[in-house]
Structures are given as C-alpha cells and as structure tokens.
Amino acid sequence: MSELVEVRNLTKVYDKKKTALQNLNLTITRGKIIGLLGPNGSGKTTLIKILNGLLNPTEGEVLINGNKPGPASKAHVSYLPERTYFQNSMKVRELIEYFTDFYEDFRPERAREMLASLNINENDRIKTLSKGTREKVQLILVMSREADLYILDEPIAGVDPAARDYIIRTIITNYNENATVLLSTHLISDIENILDEVIFIKEGHLVLQSTVEDIRMIQGKSVDSYFREVFAC
C-alpha cells in the first residue's frame, strides 16, 4: 500500500464562524517530498494540526497508515511546528533523552552528530540558546527520527539564507527514503528544487495536487511562477 495519508471530506470550522477547511479530499503517497503551498490563511496549518491530532475536525476524517490521529499514528509522524515547544529550563541533553524515551524510531547518535556539527553544546539549557539555535535543535530532533511521515510547518520561515540552506540540507539528507516529507512554506523558490509534488490550498479548498515535473511540462512554468499565477491577488 503506497497511500500514507488519506484526507476524506475534511472540514474545519472555528467558533462556528470561520471555515478553515472545506470538504478537503487528498491522498499522500510514500517516498516523496511534498510542498503544501498556499497563501496566509489558506488552511495549511489547520490541516497540519489535524494530521497531528492537535485539532479535531468539524467533519470528515484523516487516516495515517490507516489510523486516525492518535498514539498509533503519532509513533510514526515526526512533526516540526512553526513554534518552539521546549520547556526552557531543559538542557539539550535532556531533550535527547526525552525523545529517546518516547519515540522508538529516534536515533540519538544521529542527533548528537548534527548538534556537534553546529557546535551546540548538549549541556546548554534551551533558555540560553538564541531563537535560531532553538529552531535548529528542534529540527535536528525531528529529523533524527526514522518516521514514516515528516510534517514540517514553515521550517524556513524567518531565518537567514545560510540557515535556510542548512535546514534544507538537513531535511534532504536525513529523512527516511521510504517516508514522505510534507512541508508547508511560502518561500517556494527556496525549496522548489527538492520537491517531488505540490499541493495548492486556497481558502480551505484543494486547488491542485500535482507532481513538480507535470507543472513544468504542462504549464511550462516553475512552481513558484505557477503559484503566483494561481494565487494572484
């Protein structure tokens, strides 16, 4: 079975007023790097949160490896949210122990290697690290898992170009090749070269799900150019 994620008739309405996702249907297969693209407020983060069990859908369902979001799916999904979720008083070493305890697919030696390559001391407390370093530590922990699905919410937003390169390199060199990376971003030109597939979402609706190759062949455009055309204001 190559289907990893199935989203069926997914609707999310906030406070009975604001519809973030409207009857969304899509299937995500294994072994790909997929860009989840859309303008601000299009529903990307809402979809990601539902996939991770952080939000409950109003209607419809999502299945990951055939399971609804829960302990079974969370054991195989590695999630990088758009914010840092550490307890500030913890040391980096304690975070490695934490991930080792809770995730069977976590590879502490890989995390230590990456931390060392960035000269991050394992005995440093999170509160002593800069915002950028915290984000890198979080990315390292997330990418040190051998998960089936990596969900990365805006991993390159708000970082300098050098850090952006490091993040992209970390993603492509560390993800399990049988797994899928679902990556949301606005900065399409920076990641376009690593994407196999894209999903365009607009106002909670699926606009397009296509391979990058098809966009280039059929539309004769880069993903970035096509995105600008589809979402032109």
Partner: peptide, 18 residues
Amino acid sequence: YQSMFTDEGYLTHTLPAT
C-alpha cells in the same frame, strides 16, 4: 496549563500516548 495548552502542548500532544 503550560505543558498542555501553550506551545509546550505541541510536544505533549504529539507524543504517542493516549
């Protein structure tokens, strides 16, 4: 409150636990 419903909750609620 912090571990369940603030940013830390993003880690707490993505642990493979019920």
